[in-house]
Design a protein around this nucleic acid. Structure first.
Lengths: 200, 200
DNA sequence: CAATGAACAATAATCAATTTCTGTTCATTT
DNA sequence: AAATGAACAGAAATTGATTATTGTTCATTG
């Protein structure tokens, strides 16, 4: 019962990294359904028992792989945001990064093999809960810069930001085609700074 | 080649109505995968040939059923909105109606039997394109009432409204738990009237 | 002490044979 | 004219027997 594998993922542990690497490779090539623990072991050149030492079951392994990917995405995105001056520019960049990842990353490969699985993941609220802690620091910076209201509840602001970003990544076009960076930026500028409210 | 069945759906045609009724009953009970054209014919007490007279294939029949449901939902919602004074109240009511329909309607039954199918539908942009014409009149009314900016591009306003409503129906909780009508109304009030912008 | 590999019952995937369903045609009926 | 029902080939689902995978245990290894 020494299983604390649920919460903390020890990416630094070389064994865990090897398992996740092998698992991700398998998922990328064969999809989740057709990836077996034995195959992951074979690809990672380790024993099946070792995998079960670090992950309770296949589901936990898959979740670990997805989590690491998601965190890697957030880190890469965080890096890109350092070039962006305003919150609106950061949002724009995040949507573009998100779309690129959906088109080129692990999810793109998975969506080709098992689109229903990807669809289920995207509709699972837990998928987004993990990213919720990403935005508060940026909201605070925007508050200090006077870009958004200082009285703003950070949790509520994060909520709107997440909803907009998720929606814009999932649906590049809802009513308007928001393809280009500038169209996206103008749209986000208006939505964040004054919604549909009265003209300035 | 006299097939104009694609675009216009003649709900007034009693034969079409019988087919859609029977089809919907089948989908509701067995799901899409386990519903056969023969079963629909049996339930509707008509011939399989008749179904193919009005719908090119099974996919077209399913789409017809979903479309009719969606239009019925929009009509019912439109009715409920007549009691609501402001755009924000209309949005609130629409989100609540949407959630109720997701919990009790055809989609709820379908989600129990074939969750992946429902997930795929919800991530299909076409699913929302059909509802895009719903909001412009309400945006215009809000403009005339001075609730939202008169210079506002209606298409852009509709885009934000759709994104918010869809997101709030799909995910009752993103950052904040938006369960109650009042919490939802307060949230929408802020997002529509001033986004994250400066305090009034 | 973690990693290994073998053994194991229970569960799930696979495969080929069979049955059902789809989409089309057409002669007949209403 | 539209609805019917039967016939049909090709596609898809179902079935039951077989094989692979899962998750667990444990003695052995590095």
């Amino acid at each position: 019962m020494s299983n604390e594998q649920f919460n903390a993922l020890h990416y630094s542990d070389p064994m865990v990294a090897r398992i996740l690497d092998a698992g991700e490779q398998c998922i990328h090539r064969f999809g989740i359904r057709r990836t077996s623990m034995g195959e992951v072991a074979r690809v990672g050149k380790l024993s099946r028992g070792s995998i079960y030492n670090h992950f309770n079951d296949k589901e936990a392994l898959i979740e670990g792989i997805i989590r690491r990917r998601q965190e890697s995405f957030l880190n890469r995105t965080e890096g890109r945001l350092e070039n962006e001056a305003t919150l609106v520019d950061k949002l724009t960049q995040s949507v573009l990064s998100g779309r690129k990842d959906m088109e080129e990353g692990l999810f793109a490969a998975l969506a080709e093999i098992e689109p229903e699985t990807v669809a289920m993941m995207f509709l699972d609220p837990r998928f987004y809960q993990r990213s919720l802690s990403f935005w508060p620091p940026h909201v605070r910076m925007a508050q200090e810069a006077g870009e958004v209201s200082a009285e703003l509840d950070i949790v509520i602001a994060t909520d709107l930001i997440m909803r907009l970003v998720v929606s814009l990544v999932m649906f590049p076009r809802m009513g308007v085609q928001l393809n280009t960076r500038s169209a996206l930026r103008d749209y986000l500028q208006q939505m964040v700074s004054r919604g549909l409210g009265p003209a300035l």
